[in-house]
Design a protein around this nucleic acid. Structure first.
Lengths: 387, 387
DNA sequence: ACCAATAAGTTGTGCTTCACAACATACTAC
DNA sequence: GTAGTATGTTGTGAAGCACAACTTATTGGT
């Protein structure tokens, strides 16, 4: 810890507070950082001079005393966020103030190859650079991939849905875009997004489970920090084997959670062919056929055990459910919470809250952008653009 | 981050390196901290002046250049570590250099009440203070309790073995000893000890499972930091419900891991009455009766599934097994590791190592002492003694 | 309309701590 | 014995923050 790093840390603390907590009075920053007024004033001035922040007229204060100017981050620093899926590549440009400056959905018919992904991203970035993003500063790219990702070098180990294996995606994208690029698992980035800006904003220990068409993904926040693990693969709840008390509840011998708690099975039981999550939620709410109700209850039983296992080990304050798991739980969220508490250690389940995910479609892009913003949040004055 | 805290952090970094890594050359400290030679020299001098460290003659170096003095922590700063069990209270005085200066085992016949525990601890501390520990500085007490402990205020929520419920143990001990006191779950502190000084010294992501007479306890290290969770109750693997593929393997309907993987069942199958872990290990190695072998294999199957679940979620680099689980696994550690890998996601299990716990009897006391040393490691010049 | 109270911005000084450079020291190897 | 090397030691300088004194802007009471 050298004398120069102290500045870096303090600037980072201010930027992080603004990024997480949104615009706020300079006096509030003084309060929460514990730094001196004069120091905070200086820090903010430096951020303003680098166009990372702005000072605005004070809010209509109802307090005595001199009003404190409101400090807000700008959208000058921009991250490129991307999310490749089977049918399309979604790209967005997101400012440090979390405004979405641009967004594109590029549908692909042919196979979604990593090279194509990188090329399309490169083109999109070039196009935006000269138009919408002229004058902005691109700080990096973040990509949310539905699959296993090695955190340190951004290699996609296995994304079955996309049929990618051992793809050095970060390197490919860096070459095409000239941006320093981070790659992460989609569910882990969803967890990060829900923690920072969504349903679990107030909790520092969070378990997030997302039910997708292809399986169940998860992410964990521990003490406010994303849980990575030794290789960065942590959070694979979908491959767990939870206890199934009644053998008749088992559908797949030797199967895992996502074989049993499964979107397709749910659709079949509801006699639906194709449905998005909103339709599925409606159908679940309206279901009354005995076979459908039985399947719903079966999946809820197994999910409750899986959640209880997670709660015993991680003792989260909040569990967030997204995708079809939100639909499944939404029928009776408190009832599911009770089932979880009944199977978890009482102390671990004390004060546990189950919540539905709240960030809708932007979740993955917001999470991916966080990946790109990480260096800026750690050291706001770094120059990150690579090429 | 103020100018005064920077000193604190640098001193803490040096003390932590020495505490973790043992005595080492001052030049090594310079290297790993990245600080300037002159700064490190100054930091060490300050630690020496506070009697926290000593400088010794350089090791017989076989390198060119001026030899660098070896810096070592002293035993001047001392923690009181305690571990109440059904039959006895174990107490030790442990130096910051991890030497065990004193140790006592106080057997109790009557019920082990929290008040008695505090009183006995107070007496022991007073007695040692005037004799063995004269001239030393007591920095605090740490207590490893077999049960659920609320981390922030040191209240024992439930220790079934001791029949303690909602006991404000930290407060009681603080009153009797005059020491600032931390309380933790025994398995969590065991995990911490194995991570810092034992079998998982080299790993930053660790799962530790300990098999005791009364159940299975666990602790998790994530990114080098103990996993606490929202209430500090994390790591209760024993209450999990792992999948049991063959219904015939289930012994307790609706039961949990520690009902199925269980020391008593193992002893029964081996036709042993009473045995310590060493005897149990021997018996397990020698077992050849079909019924015994079948029970051993049954428990190993269920344990493997439970470990695979943990590996999927936490992606640890090392899993450490202690107590009777070490005995159970020790028969064929690599075989068990294979079974775990077969059920976990391949990437999560990549490079996973299963190891046996290595700190023997001192593990819990060492872990408890770490609890007491935490304030010193965070701020070496702090004055911690309370009364 | 004015004045006290309050809260926060602004400015200048001083202290702490570290980095750096120049020099001194102790050891290896030839 | 001398060259080479790595490290300790000492003194100077700069960065960054705290603090105090002062200034500014608002509320609320008279």
């Amino acid at each position: 810890m050298s004398a120069t790093r102290i500045r870096q840390q303090n600037l980072a603390a201010v930027v992080e507070l603004l990024h997480h907590g949104g615009p706020q009075a300079r006096a509030a920053l003084t309060e929460t950082t514990g730094l001196n007024r004069s120091t905070v004033g200086d820090l903010v001035a430096e951020l303003v001079s680098h166009r990372l922040a702005e000072e605005r007229a004070p809010d209509a204060a109802r307090r005595a005393g001199r009003p404190s100017p409101v400090v807000a981050l700008t959208s000058h620093a921009v991250a490129i966020a991307a999310n490749p899926e089977v049918d399309a590549l979604t790209v967005a440009a997101i400012g440090l103030d979390r405004t979405i400056l641009a967004r594109a959905r590029i549908v692909w018919d042919a196979e979604a190859s990593p090279a194509l992904t990188a090329t399309l991203l490169g083109e999109q970035v070039r196009s935006w650079r000269s138009t919408l993003l002229a004058g902005h500063r691109l700080v990096g790219a973040g990509i949310a991939v539905p699959g296993l990702v090695r955190a340190d070098d951004g290699v996609v180990r296995d994304a079955p849905h996309l049929r990618w294996r051992d793809v050095p995606l970060a390197a490919l994208v860096r070459r095409e875009t000239g941006l320093s690029t981070g790659v992460g698992n989609d569910a882990s980035l969803g967890a990060l997004a829900e923690h920072r800006f969504g349903a679990a904003r107030d909790a520092d220990d969070v378990v997030y489970l997302n039910g997708g068409a292809s399986g169940i993904g998860g992410g964990v926040i521990v003490g406010g920090v994303p849980l990575g693990g030794a290789g960065g693969y942590a959070g694979e709840f979908g491959q767990n084997r939870p206890g199934i008390e009644d053998a008749a509840d088992r559908r797949v011998p030797g199967g895992v959670l996502e074989d049993e708690v499964n979107r397709t099975r749910l659709l079949t039981a509801l006699e639906l062919r194709d449905a998005d999550d909103a339709e599925l939620s409606r159908a679940l709410g309206a279901a009354d056929a005995p076979a459908a109700l039985e399947e719903i209850e079966r999946q809820r039983r197994i999910l409750a055990t899986a959640l209880a296992n997670a709660v015993n080990v991680l003792n989260p304050g909040v569990v967030v459910l997204g995708g079809f798991l939100a639909s499944l739980a939404g029928r009776d969220l408190e009832g599911l919470a009770e089932d979880v508490r009944a199977q978890a250690m009482s102390a671990c389940a004390e004060g546990l809250e189950l919540r539905l995910a709240s960030l809708a479609d932007d979740r993955l892009l917001v999470g991916a952008a966080e990946l790109a913003f990480a260096p800026v949040l750690a050291d706001p004055l770094v120059e990150t653009t690579v090429a």
